[in-house]
Amino acid sequence: MKELQWFLDLVSTQNMVDSSVNLGVSQSALSRRLAALESEVGAPLFDRNGRHLALNECGKALARRAQDATNVWQRGVEEVHRLMDPERGTVRLDFMHSLGTWMVPDLVRAYREKHPYVTFQLVQGAAQTLIDHVLAGEADVALVGPKPAAFVDSGELGWKQLATQRLALAVPSTHEWAGRDSVSIAEACDEDFVAMLPGYGTRMLLDELTARAGFRPKLVFESMELTTLAGLVSAGLGVAVLPLGDRNIVIPGMELIPLKEKRERELGMVWRRKVSPALAAEAFREFVSQRPEIRLQEGYPTCGTRRPRHQ
């Protein structure tokens, strides 16, 4: 960039004497630099009148691009400085849609109370997509579930569990099972299911549970939002596997019956191991890692008119 700096100074002064003083070089050295540059681009850049110079059309064209390049370079330098400053850097945080109403706002709010000048670059998506972002270096951390055991066990990803949720079968309030204390996923083998799209965390859990029970669920609709599934269950379109402990999916006309299966939905943070993250991202990851794990399954309210419990 030094070549651009001396050229832009000469463009500004259009005077060999003034620029040689500004740059701290001799006039002869500056003259040689200009001659070499003009030889490289294949055209004179100034019209000469003794020591005075007048920028010509070729010089103006090169000066515009030189200024653009200098500006881009300066922005790059500033971005590096931001990445190396834990108090003013940017954290690239990816998260599942279902965490956007409680976990993500809570974490970002708590962190920014202590580090108000840190910025966040946020991306929502399916769990598998977010894991791919972290592996590709496109995100610093991601909040996902369930735990991506294969990548964690191989050492590619780090994992910090932040919460667990027991799973339930969501049924319409008018369903014959409404009011039961628990249900096995195997009992739902003949039911219509509404489910998340492939790659989403809750869909991974549904596929895992039904495969263990020896059946493939009959899907009548696939969505990107848990709230949509809850609404469709309340409308009687089908049943769904949903997590307990999320008040945003508690709606009238639907009941959540805890599953007998012990499988839980793990929610946690993943990051790429064996790389040096930006300092702001590293500080945020350390902040999240120090938070205690929570269990979102106790005392969960149900909606709709409950039927008498089966004896």
Rank of each mutant, 00 (worst) to 15 (best):
S98Y: 02
V108R: 06
T90E: 14
V118D: 01
E87T: 06
D85Y: 08
R92A: 06
D85C: 10
F120H: 04
H115K: 15
M103I: 13
R109A: 12
A110T: 07
Q121E: 13
M103L: 15
L93M: 04
F95A: 14
K114T: 14
V108N: 05
T119C: 13
D94A: 12
K114Q: 15
H97K: 06
D106L: 08
L93H: 00
D106T: 11
H97P: 02
P86D: 07
V108D: 04
H97S: 08
Y111H: 06
M96Q: 05
Y111Q: 05
W102S: 10
G100T: 02
H115Y: 15
P105M: 09
E113V: 04
P116A: 08
G89N: 03
R112A: 09
R112E: 12
E87G: 06
V123P: 00
L107S: 11
V123M: 10
L107H: 11
L107E: 09
M84V: 04
P116M: 08
T101I: 03
V91H: 03
T90W: 04
E113W: 02
L99P: 01
D106C: 08
S98N: 12
S98V: 09
H97A: 11
T90G: 04
G89R: 03
D94N: 07
H97F: 08
Y111E: 02
L93E: 00
P86E: 10
Q121F: 11
P116G: 10
D85S: 14
H97V: 07
R88N: 10
E87V: 00
P105S: 06
K114G: 13
R92S: 01
